[in-house]
Design a protein around this nucleic acid. Structure first.
Lengths: 212, 212
DNA sequence: GCGGGTTTACCGTCTGGACGGTAGAGTCGC
DNA sequence: GCGACTCTACCGTCCAGACGGTAAACCCGC
């Protein structure tokens, strides 16, 4: 049991490694095998088909993000907590280590979409669930969705290396999103003298339903 | 000439079609060929190698977006114009038609990253240029980048079908981003009576450099 | 506590098919 | 009749998956 699960982990880890290093096109069973220090037959014992391997990679990704959300307090039930957790889980606390992990996990998506779009189905379902949680988080749906889009955008651009933001700009954006989030939490803040009201633009714009 | 360019277009169009319908894995020369109503040899006349085909798809994507930016007035030089154009070009004016086009063009990215990450190099350069233009657009770098991330996030989630926003939520978010953008343009708005001031949260947070 | 049987975990080889790319022979407009 | 364009074989390679084998781990009656 422990033995087998350990090997499984090594295989998944190795597969991610291959994708990041050589690109998805080079993710063959043999490549993943040798990366994990195992034979091709060995891989096929754990994953009956190549698609099964990729699926496992994708599932690993979404459950990892779920864990992050919980660790960031997204399930506390406090209004805005989920959105904030979504933001923090994506932007990460310390950018250095997190980035590698983000990219590592993103490799799964790349592998998934490359192999066959329908392998992303389980991931799609998770995204729908997250979107549900976001719009029902106590903020206006638009504000929560805005935060989500920005977070997803960050992840995406860093994943593909499409002009990812520099460290300091990145944290400025995060701060700005956090501020936006706070202001969206208190739409009618009974303006207390000098404390600037940051509201408006975030009064509830009709009760949005959620993603398809 | 016209004849050849026409065929070239048909090939690129067909290739996108295949990616969207069957997934990147099925984008073979033969598949693209038969989609374009041509033979494999015919394709190889126009694109000496498969990589050349994918590269052309990617270039088509970025120049198309550049055209959108210009059409949206992004090159007017007015402060904030580029950021606004970036936003509008991504969110599109009418969501129906635009979405198909977005996905169609996104197919190129998928194809690129799947085949070989380094085929995205030209696209990376474009992204860097856009990011440059954004941070130098007259708003705070963080505000401009925030808008960019949200736009990229929208594109990405719609591309992969990862819980894309519904039509009305989508436009709510766009409106909120536009409001954010306006407020970032006028950081010290000399509050004119009842007109709500939407500022703060966007005062310039140090002069961020731009992406690597 | 030992031998026979079963399961688990893995290995190495083989094959059928797909795919990128090549060679060369048309075809057709000008 | 030339050159741009397109076609039809064809080759070599690569890879997923099948398959048969092996060796250790684990029962389990006795």
């Amino acid at each position: 049991m422990t033995r087998a699960e350990d090997t499984r982990e090594r295989i998944l880890f190795g597969a991610e490694e291959v994708v990041l290093r050589d690109g998805v096109a080079h993710l063959t069973l043999e490549a993943a095998a040798s990366q994990a220090g195992i034979s091709k037959g060995g891989i096929l014992y754990h994953f009956h088909t190549r698609a099964a391997l990729v699926t496992a990679m994708v599932q690993r990704l979404s459950s990892s993000f779920d864990a992050d959300l919980e660790r960031e307090g997204g399930l506390s039930g406090r209004p805005g907590a989920f959105t904030k957790a979504y933001l923090q889980a994506t932007f990460g606390s310390s950018g250095e280590v997190a980035e590698g992990r983000q990219r590592r996990l993103g490799a799964a998506v790349i592998a998934g979409v490359a192999a066959d779009p329908e392998l992303l189905e389980p991931l799609r379902e998770r995204f729908v669930a997250w979107q549900h949680a976001l719009v029902a988080d106590g903020l206006s749906p638009a504000s929560a969705s805005l935060v989500r889009l920005a977070a997803d955008g960050l992840w995406f651009t860093e994943l593909l290396g499409l002009a990812p933001l520099e460290e300091d700009l990145r944290s400025s954006v995060r701060d700005e999103l956090l501020a936006h989030l706070d202001s969206a939490l208190a739409p009618h803040p009974a303006p207390t003298a000098s404390q600037a009201r940051t509201g408006r633009g975030t009064r509830h714009p009709r009760g949005g339903k959620n993603a398809p």
